[in-house]
Write a protein that binds this DNA or RNA. Sequence first.
DNA 1: TTTCATTTGACTAATTTTGACCAAATTTTA
DNA 2: TAAAATTTGGTCAAAATTAGTCAAATGAAA
Lengths: 155, 155
Amino acid sequence: MEEKSISDIIEEYLKQILGESSQIEIRRSEIANHFDVVPSQINYVIKTRFTIQHGYLVQSKRGGGGYIRIERVNLLDNVDVLNSLIQAIGDSLSERDAYDIIRTLYDEKVLTRREGDLMLVALSKQTLNVNDSNAESRLRARILISMLNRLRYES
Amino acid sequence: MEEKSISDIIEEYLKQILGESSQIEIRRSEIANHFDVVPSQINYVIKTRFTIQHGYLVQSKRGGGGYIRIERVNLLDNVDVLNSLIQAIGDSLSERDAYDIIRTLYDEKVLTRREGDLMLVALSKQTLNVNDSNAESRLRARILISMLNRLRYES
DNA sequence: TTTCATTTGACTAATTTTGACCAAATTTTA
DNA sequence: TAAAATTTGGTCAAAATTAGTCAAATGAAA
């Protein structure tokens, strides 16, 4: 018999509810109370078992009426292309390389013209306007990678 | 979305009335009384949910016969409103305000879902990852304004 | 034993709710 | 008409209500 940790049990519980609707909203303290654990354990479960790599999107709100929302998302077909591009970018990216990548994605019909244009202006030297040229390239890389990661799935 | 806080419920109520006519006039104390909250909570709801970033204009008058007027404005074909939006961004923009603006543009069908999502991740705190919080907000403002202008002057 | 995962709790951050006090416009009264 | 009273809405900050972070302690596995 496998000895399940309480984290495993909470994961199972959440996934069971997620089986009924593709999106759930929970109150952290309620779940914590239900399983008799400290509230931060819910964060632990989410961080280790409901990541985007697992196919889940998580959003939350604090304060009165606060919640944690977990949504199951569909991974798309282009994942391989995107992954290899993300690898190639690394942690630094020139404006020219950004253009080439976006152009490629447009040619591959991963992006529409408008999407590509929006991405390009966001990555332009003029927009970023960072003093240090290395910092600028690193920032450009971070932004493009984030956008490519976003393209890997849909809600 | 599950509405939970009383502020959410008041927001929903006002938007429902706004669905019938594009402009409403309310008496603050009446609404407060109706939902059994202090009057200033109405100000809170308006300040957090009916800003120009959300696509609303608010005017009010004090004294006898006083009112709060909320008007739904159209960002699509009203150049002035779009300008005031860009002006409201100024040179600094929080992640929350960015979300509100992009959400509004999506609701107005200026953006597709995918375009909005791409813009949001590009503007997220995590992506920008700037040490100085002021610098981060200024960068966020530059990027969003660039993207908005790109949409604006599109052929 | 060493390493990795889980559990806990103290501290932090964001959002909403409440109430005391302020300001403006109108109405009443002198 | 001028002052006073009344009727509205505005501001701001404290309190209350959620969730997030991080690292120490504990447990499990290799």
